[in-house]
Design a protein around this nucleic acid. Structure first.
Lengths: 212, 212, 212, 212
DNA sequence: AATGAATGAGCTTTCATTCAT
DNA sequence: TATGAATGAAAGCTCATTCAT
């Protein structure tokens, strides 16, 4: 649906340039968050960044490239968080795994909820070419983890479907809960319920009680 | 986040007008689905509708108003489906209720998946003033239903949180599953798992087996 | 080297439109003549035409299309002049034919010398798709005419080469002479010499004397 | 029609500078030939020359100055060729003179036909201030030569007009023939005819046969 | 009421030129 | 002097909206 986007037109080697690229990205993010895709245009971005349009185009081949960069950056951060959560998994009980994954998801969505909203929804099918393992890799990671903890799973569980479902359940519920959250306590409550739901769905016995 | 949108500039009272308004909406929907928000502009809509731009502006105060109308219409339809599902609930078992709700959601998302995708994602925070029962009303209906079937629920269940969670679980999972569905069978499988998940989360005992 | 150019985006049916298209073309021609291709831009053209840019684009798909239109119009006029000269040829002597062709060329280049200069030189390889018989057809017409008057030609004349050469001789000499002419008398003198040159080159005997 | 262009902002006295100026000119010529005036911009030129834009502006006051330099250089070369041809004229017959001049013209146009095309056509009225002997000097040289060979000329020949005409005839015909030449043989044929034409126009008797 | 030609602000992008390093 | 990052005016084109017919 969308086209080209090579990472960067020109690598910013000098400090001044690094600073500029960053200023441009920050401005772009701010406009995206405050005005949505509709209010996003290269002139405003450059102005807000305190930079000339020309400079913007020195580092970003097009408006699309700039957006793609931002999207990639954001999802790279998310992926990072999950990777860390994943690596910190010791041979514990499945319940603990669930908790860690959900918490990682919450943390990820709290990085910048409004930006995340725009990037996943408004720009949901704006394709970023690159190393786009993000979504799939996460789903795959979940599937792999489920296989690893197979012994603790309900016997009749169809693991691929369960992975798919768990992924959407967590991703979407956390996403909307964090974004539309009215109060932090409320969010916490829903997140806790989410953990219970997942656990009761996946685990052999209703060992839900210990989750919290 | 967005501005004006009074329901209708002028109520189309004459038959011909009703026809025009409809033609415009149909054309708008088609363009939205085929070209996304990016390809959507009042001139094309009018042309596709076989109507002059002037006429479009006779019935829709602005581009935004037209989109708002479409969004409202679509979500009204969805709500309608749920209302029917809700009303057809007889004093059955909770499992049956869950199945009915999920199926209603699937039906709703199958009304026009691509349109739904654009309206909920691309135009996700495009606000429609509306008699806003839609989202909340659905969540409220779920909550009310849960209270009605309290006896069959897990004792320690926090009903408001459960309603919220159930709503997001169903809405988002079904949405993404229907929209990104690769094969119908696959979709069915995931939907079945969804029912099991919900049931195992809500119900006193793991009576999941009977769900299908 | 250049791309698309469909005649007109939209046929100007109403009088107002015809007027507009014409005003735009006139303005475009004036700018082309006064500022050359370098100073030619759609905003200026529209402004000079007393019309909005939008209107310009309503009738001309692009800057290029507008230029192509003008080029086509101009060369159509030229072709017309030659056609008339061609048709007025009675079975006279070759000298008379030469005179008529050269005069037609002079008239053609006098239609709008500066415009002609820009269209043939600066925009020389800006390709106009359409019925581009202009150049070739003229050369072919000359060749055909030479065959018709073969009896009066020098015996050893290679007609295709002679046609090619005559074409360039007349076209280029007249072109430059008219455009760079310092005084009308001077131009006339050169044109007369040109007729003599052509005649003495083509004709069996040096009957050049009668040319004037 | 165009503005400023002082010969050189600064005389490149040091060896390295001479080298730079040359590199820039070569790059400019290459771009002009490969991409035409449209693709010509100082940034690309500098890059292709392996030099910074800043340096380009150290030696050329503006884009126009650079083009002017190139144009002057090219026409200086042409003039040189003619000067040599002119000087090599011994007291021969007029026919030989004609042949030498035409051949010199052909050689001149073959120096760099594509560059020549752009400089004379696309940049035809791009004015170079120059010590302008170029065009006129050539025409004057022809006129002088004709006076020198007056005895062999047709009695009724108006020498100034004949010089003017001969100049255009040769210049334009050769130019177009060399540039649009489809095959070398074809070009040679036309060039031969050109010599015949000129000779039969200028000389007392139709001694065309000996030309080749 | 309906039409659709006309408008022009606004957006993306380019490129000649400058100037801090 | 050389560099090349930065500038910003300017150009091509679109499209929401108006208004004369």
């Amino acid at each position: 649906m969308k086209k080209d986007n090579f990472p960067l037109k020109k690598q910013p080697v000098q400090k001044r340039s690094v600073f500029m690229v960053d200023a441009i990205k920050q401005a772009a993010i701010r406009i995206l968050k405050e005005q949505g895709l509709a209010g996003f245009n290269t002139n405003s971005v450059a102005e807000l960044a305190g930079v000339s349009v020309g400079s913007l185009y020195q580092y970003f081949a097009s408006k699309e490239t700039l957006i793609a960069e931002i999207k990639r950056d954001h999802f790279d951060e998310l992926r990072q968080l999950f990777k860390q959560a994943s690596e910190s998994l010791t041979s514990e009980k499945l319940e603990g795994v669930v908790v860690k994954f959900v918490d990682a998801s919450v943390d990820a969505h709290r990085l910048d909820p409004e930006l995340h909203r725009i990037l996943s929804d408004e720009l949901g099918n704006f394709e970023v070419v690159e190393n786009d393992q993000s979504k799939d890799s996460l789903k795959n990671a979940i599937e792999a983890t489920l296989y690893r903890y197979k012994a603790q799973l309900r016997d009749d569980l169809d693991i691929p479907s369960a992975a798919h479902l768990s992924y959407y359940l967590v991703e979407k519920t956390v996403h909307d809960t964090v974004i539309n959250s009215k109060s932090p306590e409320n969010t916490d409550k829903v997140i806790d319920e989410l953990k219970i739901m997942l656990t009761s769905y996946l685990c052999k016995r209703g060992v839900n009680a210990e989750v919290k």
